[in-house]
């Protein structure tokens, strides 16, 4: 439980609550000497109570103005989810259809399909934190890891814009890994690579990647959007053609398998299969994750305003029942009796 304020700077007004200590709202009466009035405990008490009520009125009005509220803390909860880096191929070929043509009519390009399916995936994974990296000739950090779904959807929405030139998958992987390793949490980490091709990874970069993969502990998924008539992961090599240059996809797959990390490749050749593959990733990734959730806040303005209203009503009541030393019924204003008034001096 914590009290916070919408406009804390308005709390500077609360010291005004001390004003009633300077004097009250009741009329003053001239009286020769207070010493001639016997001490009256009840009068004292009422005078004190009125001062306190006035302090409470000003104080709670000022507090109500500052917008007090309760709750809103972050609490840690455990649910299903992961920290996911989406590594997305932004090479020009992603804007073609699975048949390898520019989309025409109602056809969907590979990037369109990836965007649609990933948006669904992000929406369903309420507790995941997502980061997005695009890669073509160079890796581009599009969005750091975040739990703000609007931001993730904004970045995923940008992936079917016209792509760039080439596919440098090695540096893309390194960037996605660095994105994941920035967060030192204990949650499970997922690297989801979406590409329509692969490229040769420089042996030097391969070595760096090996150590980084080992250190970061990620589950790797490769959603390979295969274009018709292109080389694939599962092709059997013709004799003499089993080189990374001729069959980059097969060799990337071999490289991933050699990392000895949880890894699964999905070779899909139409938009429907993309959905099935992403659904399966969703099923596989059900590890506990500690996520933070904000408790709902409760607005306490009404409470303080009510407090101010009640105490101001008490003040009005006191004012209504205010008598005086000299009652107005006597035309000359002569002292009617020398008894002490309850509201003798404010």
């Amino acid at each position: 439980m914590s009290l916070s304020f919408a406009d804390p700077q308005l709390l500077w007004l609360t010291p005004l609550a001390a004003l009633p200590l300077l004097g009250g709202v009741l009329r003053r009466s001239a009286f020769p000497s207070l010493a001639s009035v016997p001490v009256d405990g009840l009068s004292r008490l009422i005078s004190l109570a009125l001062t306190f009520t006035a302090v409470a009125t000003i104080g709670s009005t000022a507090l109500a103005l500052a917008g007090p509220r309760r709750g809103g803390e972050l609490v840690e909860k455990i649910g299903d989810g992961a920290e996911t880096a989406l590594l997305i191929d932004r090479s020009g070929s992603m804007n073609e259809t699975f048949a390898g043509r520019p989309p025409e009519g109602g056809e969907e390009s590979k990037a369109n399909a990836a965007r649609r399916v990933l948006q669904d995936y992000v929406r369903r994974r309420q507790h995941d934190r997502f980061g997005v990296v695009g890669f073509s000739t160079s890796p581009i950090r599009m969005l750091p890891l975040t739990d703000k779904m609007d931001a993730v959807l904004g970045a995923v929405a940008a992936i079917d814009r016209p792509g760039l030139d080439y596919t440098d998958i090695g540096r893309g992987l390194a960037t996605a890994l660095s994105l994941l390793s920035e967060d030192a949490g204990q949650s499970s980490r997922v690297l989801l690579l979406v590409s329509d091709g692969a490229a040769v990874i420089d042996p030097k970069v391969q070595q760096t990647l090996r150590t980084t993969f080992a250190r970061t502990r990620v589950n790797l998924y490769w959603l390979f959007l295969r274009t018709a008539n292109s080389t694939g992961i599962s092709d059997t090599p013709k004799p003499g053609e089993d080189t990374p240059q001729a069959m980059p996809e097969r060799h990337l797959d071999i490289f991933f398998k050699s990392l000895k990390i949880p890894y699964k490749a999905f070779e899909v050749e139409n938009p429907g299969a993309v959905e099935a593959a992403v659904a399966e990733i969703g099923r596989l990734e059900t590890h506990p994750i500690v996520y933070r959730e904000r408790l709902p806040t409760e607005d306490l303005t009404g409470f303080f305003a009510a407090l101010a209203l009640l105490s101001s009503l008490a003040l009005v009541a006191a004012k209504i029942f205010e008598a005086g030393l000299f009652t107005s019924s006597l035309p000359l204003g002569l002292p009617e009796a020398a008894r002490p008034s309850r509201r003798r001096a404010a």
Binding site: V132, G134, I140, R141, M142, L143, P144, T146, K148, D150, A151, V152, G154, A155, A157, A158, R161
Partner: peptide, 14 residues
């Protein structure tokens, strides 16, 4: 484009 316009008031950190 890295990301389409998103409300900074709701998602400042990213």
């Amino acid at each position: 484009l890295l990301f389409e316009p998103i409300d900074v008031c709701g998602a400042f950190a990213p």
